[in-house]
Computed example of a mutant assay.
Amino acid sequence: MAHTQQGRSGRRGRDETAEERADRMWQELIQEVRVAQTGVQILFGFLLTVVFTPKYEELSDTDQTIYIITVVLGACATGALIGPVSLHRLVAGRSVKPQAVRWASRLTLFGLVLLLATTCAALLLILRVATRDGFVPYLVAGVVAWYLLCWFVLPMWTRHRHTAP
C-alpha cells in the first residue's frame, strides 16, 4: 500500500499545511523517542549500579576503562534522547514547530548513534568479563554490524529505493 495519495490540490503526498505536517511529524517523532528512551534509561540505570558491586574492584584496568566509557556514552545517549522533550517544552507556543521538529529529529538520530555505541560497549564489557575469550571483539563487531544494518542501512536503503524523485 502506498503511503502517498493524490491530495486535493492534485499533487502527490498528504494534503496538509506546514503546521499540520509539523504537528504530525512531532507526534511520530515523540512515539519513536519513547521507545528509544525506555531502552536507554533501563540500560543507563543498570550501568550506574555496576560500580557499587563487589565485582567492580576485581575488573582489570581495561575493563574499568570500558565501563567508564560505557557510562559516559549512556549518559550522553540519555541526554540526546530526552533532549527533544526539553526542546519542545522550551519552544512550545513560539511558532517554531517545524524548526523544533528538525532539531528534535537530529537529536534523536544522534541519540540512536550514542545508544548503539553504549549498547555495544556494554556488550563488550559483559562478554569480556563473562568469557575472557579472544573471540569477543569479533562477536561484538558482528552485533555492531547487525545494529547498523537494522537501524541505519535498511532504513536508508528503503528511503532511497521507495522515495519518489
Rank of each mutant, 00 (worst) to 15 (best):
T65L: 15
F52C: 11
H3E: 15
A164L: 10
D63Q: 14
I68M: 12
R159E: 04
V72M: 14
L154S: 05
T78F: 05
A36R: 04
R161P: 04
R12D: 08
A77V: 00
R106P: 00
S95P: 07
W157R: 10
L154G: 02
D15R: 04
F46D: 07
A164Q: 09
G79H: 09
T108G: 02
I126C: 07
W157I: 14
L124C: 07
D15E: 13
V51F: 09
A92M: 06
S86V: 14
L123G: 07
G79V: 11
H88F: 10
L149N: 08
E16D: 10
Y138D: 12
V40Y: 01
A92N: 06
G142T: 13
T70D: 14
Y138T: 12
S9W: 04
G93W: 00
P137G: 15
R14F: 14
F52S: 12
P54A: 10
F110K: 06
Y138A: 12
F44K: 01
R24W: 04
G13D: 11
L139D: 11
F52A: 14
V35P: 00
G45V: 07
Q37Y: 00
V101H: 13
Q37K: 01
G83R: 03
V40Q: 02
V40R: 00
A18T: 15
T17G: 07
A22E: 03
L116G: 06
P98L: 14
G39H: 00
P165L: 09
C150W: 09
V91I: 08
Q37W: 01
